[in-house]
Amino acid sequence: MSALLEVRGLTRRFGGGRSILGTRKPELTAVRGIDFDLHRGDTLGIVGESGCGKSTLARMLVGLDAPSEGSIALDGRALTQGGARALAKRVQYVFQDPVSSLNPRHRIDTILEAPMKYLLGLGKQARKQKLEKLCEAVGLDMRVLERYPHEFSGGQAQRIGIARALAAEPDIIVLDEPVSALDVSVQAQVLNLLGTLKRERDLTYIFISHDLAVVESVATRLAVMYFGRVVEEAADRSAFRAPLHPYTDLLLRSAPVPGQKRVSAGGDTGELPDPYRPPDGCAFAERCPRATAECRAHDPELNVKGRRPEHRAACLYPLDLPDRSPLNPSPRRDR
């Protein structure tokens, strides 16, 4: 089956070039050569620490930022630099901070009608009918349409943000930390809503988060990012049960589990390399207890390392852990 979304060599650099005096400006590479395929119906979970490039990747996927290198293709058709409109119609974004992502000067009906008007070209009567269906789909009363963003709680505002994404009738929705700013009880409600909408509307999700427990509950595939690149990927949940990359293992061991003592991260400093002076070898080497001189000299590719060919890691010395999840130590089968 052909991929709905194909990403090849996606790279984003900031800065660089020379000043008017001829001195070289510092350059930062936020995303370094990301490759992945996304098939219809998938939920790709992308995890990693703050500063690893998750949000920069998300902004490129929805056309809010242009890649420095690489390509994005939808249904096998590569998008050019002017393909932002095509991306906006097919790929929509749900932001991390639901309240600040809504224009405070506009009423909710104006906010929700904008994608219908400018992306779908719907007339006034068609937009009105669609508004009613959107409110019903996300569990909002029609009276919210006459109010302004500041009048809503975080959970209500996120439902509005989801409705705005649905208004463009997208195939893919990029969810950038969609529940991190919400209370735990509200998180569960929003996650349940997203699951229902996915089933009913045949949606495909890219779910970005630093919360491993949340990602494990929703993702069908996993990509782990560190220092701007994917260091581990799996076509199922196998990375949660038996991670290959030491960084994935560190994330899983660092995740809090109710009723269990938190496992020590083994003296990890938690410091990322200097983005303006990236190391020559593996970027995780200085934090990795398994690192050798070879790791510090060679940056490993994302090669096949797991028991399944779909489970790969960018590591010279991958882990060989028991088939169990650090988030749930008891052995279990795939869900």
Results as ranks from 00 to 15, higher is better:
His106Met: 15
Ala168Asp: 08
Pro278Trp: 11
Glu132Gln: 13
Glu233Asp: 05
Cys315Arg: 14
Gly41Ser: 06
Pro170Leu: 05
Ile111Val: 04
Ala234Ile: 10
Phe240Gln: 05
Arg229Ser: 09
Asn303Glu: 11
Ser217Glu: 07
Met116Tyr: 10
Pro115Cys: 04
Arg335Cys: 14
Met116Asp: 03
Arg143Met: 06
Gly270Ser: 02
Asp299His: 13
Asp183Leu: 08
Glu177Ala: 10
Leu244Phe: 08
Arg290Pro: 05
Phe284Gln: 06
Ile162Met: 01
Asp211Glu: 09
Glu146Val: 06
Val231Thr: 07
Asn328Ile: 12
Ile72Asn: 07
Glu294Ile: 11
Gly161Met: 07
Leu175Lys: 05
Ser209Ile: 01
Leu119Arg: 01
Pro170His: 12
Pro26Met: 00
Gly228Asn: 02
Ala86Leu: 14
Pro309Arg: 10
Ala167Ser: 08
Leu197Cys: 12
Arg18Thr: 04
Thr292Lys: 11
Ala30Cys: 01
Ser153Leu: 08
Asn328Lys: 14
Arg296Trp: 10
Tyr226His: 12
Arg159Cys: 11
Arg221Thr: 08
Ala66Gln: 11
Lys261Asn: 03
Glu310Thr: 14
Lys25Glu: 06
Gly154Glu: 07
Asp320Arg: 06
Pro256Leu: 04
Lys89Thr: 13
Asp37Cys: 13
Gln81Val: 12
Gly161Ser: 11
Asp280Arg: 15
Val224Glu: 01
Leu120Phe: 00
Asp299Phe: 13
Pro326Ser: 15
Leu64Gly: 05
Cys282Ser: 13
Lys25Gln: 13
Lys124Arg: 15
Cys315Glu: 11
Ile208Lys: 07
Val91Asn: 00
Leu87Phe: 03
Leu321Lys: 15
Met1Trp: 09
Ala58Tyr: 04
Arg40Gly: 13
Arg312His: 08
Asn328Gln: 15
Leu193Phe: 14
Ala137Tyr: 02
Arg296Ala: 10
Ile46Val: 09
Gly195Val: 13
Asp75Phe: 00
Ser101Cys: 01
Gln129Lys: 14
Ile160Asp: 09
Gly155Asn: 02
Asp141Phe: 10
Gly22Tyr: 10
Ser217Tyr: 07
Glu151Trp: 00
Phe95Val: 04
Val230Cys: 04
Asn328Ala: 15
Gln187Tyr: 13
Asn328Glu: 15
Thr56Ser: 12
Glu216Phe: 02
Arg85Leu: 11
Val7Ala: 00
Leu140Pro: 01
Gly281Tyr: 04
Leu10Trp: 00
Arg24His: 05
Glu136Cys: 08
Leu182Met: 09
Gly15Leu: 00
Ala293Trp: 14
Tyr226Met: 13
Glu310Ala: 13
Ile34Asp: 00
Gly270Asn: 01
Arg32Met: 03
Ile206Leu: 09
Ser19His: 06
